[in-house]
Amino acid sequence: MEAKGARILVIDDEKQIRRLLKVALTGHGYEVEESVCGGDGLSRAAAYRPDLIVLDLGLPDMNGLEVVRQLREWSQIPVIILSVKEQENDKITALDAGADDYVTKPFSMGELLARIRAALRHVAGAGDEPVLKFGDLIIDIARRRVTINGMEIKLTPTEYDLMKNLAVHAGKVLTHRQLLRTVWGPSYENDTHYLRVYIGQLRRKIEQDPSRPGHIITEPGVGYRLL
């Protein structure tokens, strides 16, 4: 599906932010619908059937986290969260509850647009492609092969699982919990140090400079994303 023309529902109580988003997103060819609170936002999501929701965490009537939970009961519409630094915990909980990505206020428009694009692409089923390309990094899911500049990289099964998970959700943040659950299993959800160790190993294999990674990006306190 073509990203242009997608319908976006913005749920935010701040008039300034709504106005800014309306102008910017419309300028980029999206159709924008606005809502000022969670309750109204949910009913509008049902009526308007948007392709994506931009949701502010701090709403006057209900927590944005609650909006995500209720929404996920009946819909898989991608949700991008707008948060401020103080809502770190809520943000992660919302991501774990099914939100797709987040942007921290104040954000740059470029950043938000990139997130929106990644989320929409994902819905369009980009992850089903058998070969994923990230610049010099190519992951051939059908053949379980990872190459950098055409050179095959040998990965352990765990490293490969991790790599594949990140690649399938490319551009989207994956929380620690999500990664641990899918790669190691539900009982390892809190063992962040496994992730740290394996991400370190992966970087040493695929990054040109592991201390300044270009592919596996750390989202501090939240998780990782592959670019």
């Binding site: 040998k154 990965l155 352990t156 099964p157 190691w184 299993g185 140090h193 496994y194 160790v197």
Partner: peptide, 16 residues
């Protein structure tokens, strides 16, 4: 310090 980090699943070392 955290103990040895287990690999996911049983078999390890994919093709090295």
């Amino acid at each position: 310090l955290p103990g040895k980090v287990p690999a996911a699943g049983e078999g390890d070392e994919h093709g090295s």
